[in-house]
C-alpha cells in the first residue's frame, strides 16, 4: 500500500463516519453539523486526485456556505432538543427500498463506467488555469447557463422567502 492509498482510506473514513452519524443521530442539529467532517474528507479525496481548486471549492461552498445554510434552517425550526423530530411511527420500509434502489444504480454505474484510468507517479499539475481555459472555450455554453441557473435560484429564493 502506498502512502496515497493510506491517505485515501483515512479520508474515506473521515467521509463515512460523520455521514453515518448524520443519518442516525436523533438530534437534527448534530446530524447537520456532523457533515462538517464529511465535507472535509471529500475535499481530501479531491486533493488526492490532484484537483486542488475543486478541493478548496468544496471547503468554501460546502463548509462555508451550505453548512451555514443548513444550520440556519435547523435553527429556524422549533424545539430542536425536544422529541418532536423523533417520529414514533417510523416509516422504515419505503426509505430503505428507495435507498437500496439508489445504491443499486450507483453500483451498476460504477461497475459499467469505463474509467480510462492511467496511474502515474508524477505529481499532478495545477488545474486552475486549465479549468479557466476550458470554461472559456469548450464549456462556454454550460458556463453561461450556470449563470442563468444561479439567476433562477436567486429569484426563486427571494420569492419563496417573501411568501411567508
Amino acid at each position: 500500500m502506498t502512502a496515497q492509498d493510506v491517505f485515501f482510506y483515512i479520508f474515506a473514513l473521515i467521509v463515512l463516519l460523520p455521514a453515518i452519524v448524520c443519518v442516525f443521530h436523533p438530534n437534527i442539529l448534530y446530524a447537520g453539523l456532523s457533515l462538517f467532517g464529511s465535507f472535509f474528507g471529500v475535499a481530501g479525496i479531491y486533493l488526492l486526485l490532484g484537483a486542488d481548486f475543486i478541493a478548496a471549492t468544496q471547503v468554501l461552498i460546502y463548509v462555508g456556505g451550505i453548512l451555514i445554510l443548513i444550520l440556519f434552517a435547523v435553527m429556524l425550526s422549533k424545539d430542536i432538543y425536544g422529541s418532536k423530530f423523533q417520529d414514533e411511527k417510523k416509516k422504515k420500509i419505503l426509505p430503505t427500498l428507495l435507498g437500496l434502489t439508489l445504491l443499486g444504480f450507483l453500483v451498476k454505474f460504477i461497475l459499467t463506467t469505463p474509467w480510462n484510468m492511467t496511474l502515474t507517479d508524477e505529481a499532478p499539475l495545477p488545474t486552475t488555469s486549465r479549468l479557466g481555459d476550458l470554461l472559456l472555450t469548450d464549456y462556454l455554453l454550460p458556463f453561461e447557463l450556470a449563470s442563468i441557473l444561479l439567476l433562477a435560484a436567486l429569484i426563486g429564493a427571494i420569492i419563496l422567502a417573501r411568501s411567508k
Binding site: A56, V59, V63, G64, L67, L71, F72, P126, T128
Partner: peptide, 25 residues
C-alpha cells in the same frame, strides 16, 4: 506555497462564521 493560495485563504476563513454561530447557539 500553494498554487491556489489566495483561494485557499478565502475557503478556510469562511469557516469562522460556522464557529461563531455554533458558539452563539
Amino acid at each position: 506555497d500553494l498554487n491556489i493560495g489566495i483561494f485557499y485563504l478565502i475557503a478556510i476563513t469562511s469557516m469562522v462564521a460556522l464557529g461563531l454561530i455554533l458558539g452563539g447557539w
